[in-house]
Each structure stands twice: as structure tokens, then as C-alpha cells.
Amino acid sequence: MDWNQQAVRSAEQYLSIQGFSCSGLIRQLSSDAGDGYTQAQARYGAQRTSACQ
């Protein structure tokens, strides 16, 4: 499984539900309450969305 691509999908899903800043999205993706991605995976996913543009 490509965890980076999964992180991108998760990031896009979060953004479709609610607005996030880039750093907020990274925190959500990497938190235990969120998806538990590593910091690197969360950063990769978030940076490929509109939140980090």
C-alpha cells in the first residue's frame, strides 16, 4: 500500500468536510484521533492539497 497516496486521499476527504490550514491538516492527519500517519506522510498528503498552496 502506498501510504503517501492514502494520506493525500485522507487530506482531500478532510477538506471536503471542513476547512483546514496547512498545519492544521498535517496535525489532523498525524494525530492519534485522526488517521495516525507519520509526520512525513501527513506533510506529503497535506502539501498536495489546496490547504497548503
Rank of each mutant, 00 (worst) to 15 (best):
7 A>Q: 07
42 A>G: 05
35 D>V: 02
25 L>T: 08
53 Q>V: 14
35 D>W: 06
41 Q>W: 00
25 L>G: 06
15 L>D: 02
39 Q>V: 10
31 S>Q: 07
37 Y>P: 04
26 I>W: 05
43 R>V: 08
52 C>S: 14
25 L>Q: 09
42 A>T: 09
49 T>C: 01
30 S>T: 04
48 R>I: 10
26 I>R: 11
51 A>Q: 06
13 Q>A: 05
11 A>R: 12
33 A>W: 00
43 R>C: 00
8 V>W: 09
29 L>P: 03
53 Q>S: 15
14 Y>F: 15
35 D>Q: 09
52 C>G: 13
40 A>N: 12
20 F>E: 01
13 Q>T: 11
8 V>Y: 12
28 Q>V: 08
53 Q>W: 12
35 D>E: 05
36 G>I: 09
48 R>Y: 11
20 F>M: 09
44 Y>Q: 05
34 G>L: 05
20 F>T: 04
47 Q>K: 08
24 G>P: 13
37 Y>N: 02
12 E>Y: 08
15 L>I: 12
23 S>R: 14
48 R>L: 13
15 L>T: 10
51 A>Y: 02
46 A>S: 05
41 Q>R: 08
42 A>W: 08
12 E>K: 15
31 S>L: 03
50 S>E: 05
22 C>M: 12
29 L>W: 04
33 A>V: 06
47 Q>T: 12
18 Q>Y: 10
9 R>A: 11
46 A>L: 03
37 Y>V: 07
11 A>G: 14
34 G>V: 04
36 G>H: 01
27 R>G: 01
44 Y>H: 11
38 T>D: 06
7 A>W: 06
24 G>S: 15
13 Q>P: 00
44 Y>G: 02
46 A>D: 03
53 Q>N: 15
26 I>Q: 12
47 Q>S: 09
49 T>H: 07
12 E>V: 10
19 G>P: 03
15 L>K: 04
33 A>I: 02
52 C>F: 14
7 A>M: 07
13 Q>K: 13
50 S>W: 10
11 A>N: 12
41 Q>A: 12
25 L>Y: 09
36 G>V: 03
26 I>T: 10
43 R>Q: 11
33 A>K: 08
41 Q>P: 02
52 C>T: 15
45 G>M: 10
26 I>H: 02
52 C>L: 14
11 A>V: 15
37 Y>G: 04
49 T>S: 03
31 S>H: 01
9 R>G: 06
19 G>F: 10
